[in-house]
Nucleic acid binder design. Sequence first.
RNA 1: GCUUCCGUGGCUCAGUUGGUAGAGCAGUGCAUUCGUAACGCACAGGUCGUCGGUUCAAUCCCGUCCGGAAGCUCCA
Length: 581
Amino acid sequence: MAKEKLNFEDAQIRSNYRHTTSHILAEAVKNIWPDAKLAIGPSIENGFYYDFDMEHKLSDQDLLKIMKEMKKITQANHKLERFELPREEAIKFMADRNEDYKVELINDLPEGEIISFYQQGDFVDLCAGPHMDSTGQIKAFKLMSVAGAYWRGDEHNKMLQRIYGTSFPTQEELDAYIAKLEEAKKRDHRKIGKEMDLFAIFEEGPGFPFFMPKGMVIRNELENFWREEHKKRGYDEIKTPLILNEQLWKTSGHWDHYKDNMYFTKIDDQDYAIKPMNCPGSMLAYKRKMYSYRDFPMRMGELGQVHRHELSGALHGLMRVRTFTQDDAHIFMLPEQITDEIIGVVNFIDDVYKMFGFKYHIELSTRPDDSMGTDEEWNMAESALKTAIEQVGAEYVVNEGDGAFYGPKLDFHLEDSIGRTWQCGTIQLDMQMPQRFDLTYIGSDNEKHRPIMIHRVIFGSIERFIGILTEHFAGKFPLWLAPVQVKLLTVAETFSDYAKEVAEKCEEAGLRVELDIRNEKIGYKLREARNERVSYIGIIGEREVEAKALSVRSSKVGELGELSVDDFVAKLVEEIKTKAL
RNA sequence: GCUUCCGUGGCUCAGUUGGUAGAGCAGUGCAUUCGUAACGCACAGGUCGUCGGUUCAAUCCCGUCCGGAAGCUCCA
């Protein structure tokens, strides 16, 4: 092949490159442990993996060994050659090599499918391709980790050993990628959360986070913001209990569909459940009285704390917990109001995410196999979501069959600093709850009718959203959210009185200010304040006292020089008011 | 829950090829009044996640449980 430069921007080429690397990995493993059985080894988002079934337990030491072997294979520069076999021969070919998993894969290929193999040196793998031309084209690679993975992703199957790795056309690009991972690690909300003393999780309650004073500031600011925005948009707020009797959950259907994730308790010998979702409570709230069609649309919001028994292995800082607060809302409406209401929510979510500078994408999930309800209902609901999103002009991808059993949904996925996406916002049309709880309203015809209902969240979970914000801003929160907006540092104790005056002015203006008048060197105090990621550090010494000013340093922009106290306060107040990023 | 790895003072970590642990930061006291990322000295602080086993002896070996990390599965 000619020595033209590889276009690594091209997803297909990138995938081929990494897929070929995974074959080299497989060959290396087979060279070292001939009894290893091959499962599958695709390219993935940022690299590739290969699954093996083998006696030897792989360790990090082994990864180095395997990489050496891979190096040999790339240096040997074997050609990758494709060939095809008829089904029977293909099965025999793999069976002769004891590749049970490959045989299973071939057996599952649809009738008439071409069965192709790729060979490099003595190594052959069942593979649809395509691939690079030769192993020598793989210039820079690294094996990242070993992990368990179920055969075919099914937890009832055998656990295989999966090796993750990545590869790039040059060592520089590989190094850059690894540097990026390290940067992401530095932003890990669990690390920053500890450093800034935002929250803590103890052994006594895995998955049950504590919010410490500084984390509470962020949380309260978010909730205040949430309340303001909902008030503007015509929502009412309610609060429903954490514990309600078991019958409610049978009525709602959660008993059948969600029981394994719920916590239970007994009160006076009666069975109760701790809510994993807010909807059933809201249904009771709705049913407390009669409604007219004139009452709609009716928007009921709730910052509802839910508890769910998540698998211990799934817990992850604030991102995945066992209790969290959903910024929930249920909207009850007439059929002809659906499109407008959904547009309202889509715009609402867009407004909020933009405020934080988030990129996001929308997914529309349609009717799953085990759904409830009629075709008419589903068609109506799906087209309502589609119409709304198209009228707004937003892009979206469709997830066929990925909706909830009670209705289709729009999911909003935020992208965090590492490029991971988190589902936060969601809009779900629910066609089951209103029926199960027999919700009604009186129409203009003086007859009872069934209202349409949607559930929706914007942050998704306050806890997770704080985790995402922490990583997104690397702890340098926008001023309106920052736990400490101003920290005043004195150069020496003689300036304490003036510093206190300045602090008082800040407080009067509503700023969250801390004062460091300790008898320490300025460099020491400054270092501490910077580590705390304080938004603005004001330094006060002789010059500042005389000028009625302070020397200001911003965590985002750096040195701002000397500002008068009034200008400084006014600047910050404005920044908070506009919720500037 | 499963696979692999991990669990030493508040934090970050060192250490013991088995004979009851050490540093820096933080804390306290003293000294310093010193202009932009860590002044110095001293003191105090852990029985090495839990329970059990092996051993004359375990923090270091084995097992159990609890917790954590990565991945799988699941999901806000």
